[in-house]
Write a protein that binds this DNA or RNA. Sequence first.
DNA 1: ACTATTTGACCGGC
DNA 2: GCCGGTCAAATAGT
Length: 304
Amino acid sequence: MESFDANVGSRLVVTELSHIKELVMQLEEHLGGCGSHDLCKLLASQIFSTIERSIGMITSSNFDSGPKRSAAVVGLADGFKTTKKRKKMTEKMKNQVKVSSAGGGETPVDDGNSWRKYGQKEILGAKYPRGYYRCTYRHSQGCAAMKQVQRTDEDPTIFNVFYLGTHTCVPKTEAAAAAGIPEASVTMTVKTEGLAVAGDLKSWSTATTPFHKSSTPASVCLAPERSPFSAPSTSVNWPVSPATSGSNHNPSFSLYNASEWWAHSELQEVVSALVVASTPPVPAMDVTDELLDVVDMDVSSFLA
DNA sequence: ACTATTTGACCGGC
DNA sequence: GCCGGTCAAATAGT
């Protein structure tokens, strides 16, 4: 059922990604002409490498190994070794699983929502502790959304994220966005690992993107209904969630998928989607279908 | 001063 | 009694 989707979807995604890659290369060449765009070039190369990595992730996890399926699932497996308790737990998990942060970031994903960490626990048999988060607006708005984040044993850069409940809170920034707050057109979280110019990037991002590591009030709780792509102008706002902001030295492509609200960004989403596509989260729906839309839309909007 | 994170303690299920 | 999940005081960051 899902294997078909995963494979076909992944293939298509790889194709699309390759296309993006080429376009980025072209972009890079053009940027090369006008020497004043170092930053742009830097970004382009980062995008390029990230895409490459994403492709690699997909191909390696999806096309080769049969039983292994994907990093996501593997991660899930090791994160939750099958005990009764966990089995029971997974049952109640609604939007679960999601791998992410292939950027070697210290922290998991920034899924666009505003989370507040309320606990951390060493889990038996797991190398890394599990973090417990809930919606920042839990009290103010009674939002019951929660999530658990845990690194996988094999690959610390990959996180299992379990979403519990759905956001019922009202996005604070929606009003701000509607008010016409300018936002960087494509504020993608470029991986900065191994980037010696982190400082530069930082200053840049502070000036042009929502990436500055402030856990500002500008947090977003995505409204489930929101059409992912109908209003790109408002979907790019990517506040670093508190959970992420605290120690996130390596902004990285993050992916997430909590059912309804999993498509709210530009290129970042494209890359995110890759892994998502290759690893259909258990209860998650037709990921691949949406994925294709994502790719389509993103490519055009990003490179337009 | 306010808000978020950390972390040890506590609680409930098994 | 063990383990995962949550609470809440202490601490840190802004």
